[in-house]
Every structure is written in structure tokens, then in C-alpha cells.
Simulated assay, not measured.
Amino acid sequence: MSDFNERTQANLKTVLEETCRELPTGGDHETRKYIAEHLIEAARSGKTTLGELRR
């Protein structure tokens, strides 16, 4: 994740937490990992704002 600037890293963490908060018990490790991988993929494709990552 060090490929991203501080703002993008913060946005990724925020959206991961928001998304997992909606899951029972905050999501298990595998679910959180799956979501994080998809968020990172989105960020690598240029979607780095909170709005873009939340879609």
C-alpha cells in the first residue's frame, strides 16, 4: 500500500472501515482482505477519492 500517497492511504482505510462496519461483527479476516484487495485495485486504476472508492 506504500505505492499510494498519504491521502489515498487514508481514503482506503476509511472506506474499508466504513464498509466492514456494515458487516456482522465487522467482517472476518478473509472478508476484510477481499474488500481491501478490491479497494487497492480500484485505487491503482485511478479511483482515489472517497466518493470514487465508495462506489
Rank of each mutant, 00 (worst) to 15 (best):
E17I: 12
S2Q: 13
E18Q: 12
S45C: 03
K13S: 10
G27D: 09
E18I: 07
E30M: 12
G51Q: 11
T31G: 00
K13P: 02
R21E: 15
L53T: 03
F4C: 09
L39E: 03
E30W: 04
I35P: 00
G51V: 00
G26T: 06
E22N: 12
E17S: 10
T14D: 12
G46S: 08
L53C: 02
I40V: 14
L53A: 02
K13G: 11
L16T: 05
V15M: 10
K33T: 14
A42L: 10
E18N: 14
S2A: 15
D28N: 11
G46N: 01
P24C: 09
T19V: 06
T14G: 05
R32I: 01
R32N: 03
L39V: 01
H38G: 12
L50T: 02
S2L: 14
L12A: 07
H29R: 14
I35D: 00
S2P: 07
S45P: 01
H29Q: 07
G26A: 06
P24K: 15
E41S: 08
E30G: 04
G27F: 00
R7M: 09
E17G: 08
E6I: 07
E52P: 03
A36H: 12
E52N: 01
T48Y: 00
I35L: 08
L12H: 04
G27I: 11
Y34H: 13
R44W: 01
G27C: 02
A43G: 03
R32A: 03
T25D: 15
E30P: 00
E41V: 02
C20T: 15
E6G: 02
T48Q: 11
A43F: 00
R55C: 04
A10D: 11
S2T: 11
L16K: 06
L53Q: 01
L23M: 15
L16C: 06
E30T: 06
A42K: 03
T8R: 07
L53R: 02
M1P: 09
D28L: 10
S2W: 11
H29V: 11
D28C: 06
P24V: 02
K33W: 10
L39P: 04
R7Q: 12
R44P: 01
R55T: 07
I40F: 05
E41C: 00
R21C: 10
A43Q: 01
E18W: 09
M1Q: 15
